[in-house]
Write a protein that binds this DNA or RNA. Structure first.
Lengths: 79, 79
DNA sequence: TGCTTATTTTACCGATCGGGAAAAAATTAG
DNA sequence: CTAATTTTTTCCCGATCGGTAAAATAAGCA
């Protein structure tokens, strides 16, 4: 199961941070590089990946986009 | 296709707002009610549903949770 | 193993903005 | 036209985030 890059449900900032970091690593990118191509600070990116709960949506979306990720919303029970 | 409550990809705050409002309406809830059970202000909720890009993640997640929604991240191409 | 280098985390400062409460204004429903 | 719902102000404290530098970790290599 779970063949593609689908993640388990994201219910917390920590979950999200995990997903992002995992993807970034998979792409062999450093924080500095990623920050550069997303127009966010390195510090922000680090905090984001570490599950800071109060990050702003726009910044978050920018990072996801740059990493080729996209969000989806659905019932908690899943697929 | 798309049998469950799966949404198209969420790439902007506007997309997200749309999903949230749709779901809230489907549940027959008012902003005041929803704000109450999510511990966020009515103003925030209104702005969120109208696509304010700078909302904070924690508040956002709280609302999604209260509405029985969950986020998922995957490749832009989808499933 | 120990050392060097690459990467990440954290501390500061300052400008900017988020969002709660409450009420008025505006839009929608009945 | 009246009641209900949503949007928008106002006041305002507290926190975010960028840039930068230093500290702490992780990686890489002989």
């Amino acid at each position: 199961m779970d063949p593609s890059t689908t993640t388990g449900g994201i219910r917390s900032a920590a979950d999200l941070g995990r997903v992002i970091r995992e993807r970034r690593k998979r792409d062999g990118l450093t924080l500095v590089e990623t920050a550069g191509l997303t127009n966010v600070g390195v510090r922000f990116l680090s905090e984001l990946e570490n599950g800071k709960p109060t990050v702003r949506l726009d910044k978050l979306l920018r990072v996801l986009g740059a990493l080729g990720l996209e969000l989806r919303a659905g019932d908690r029970d899943g697929r």
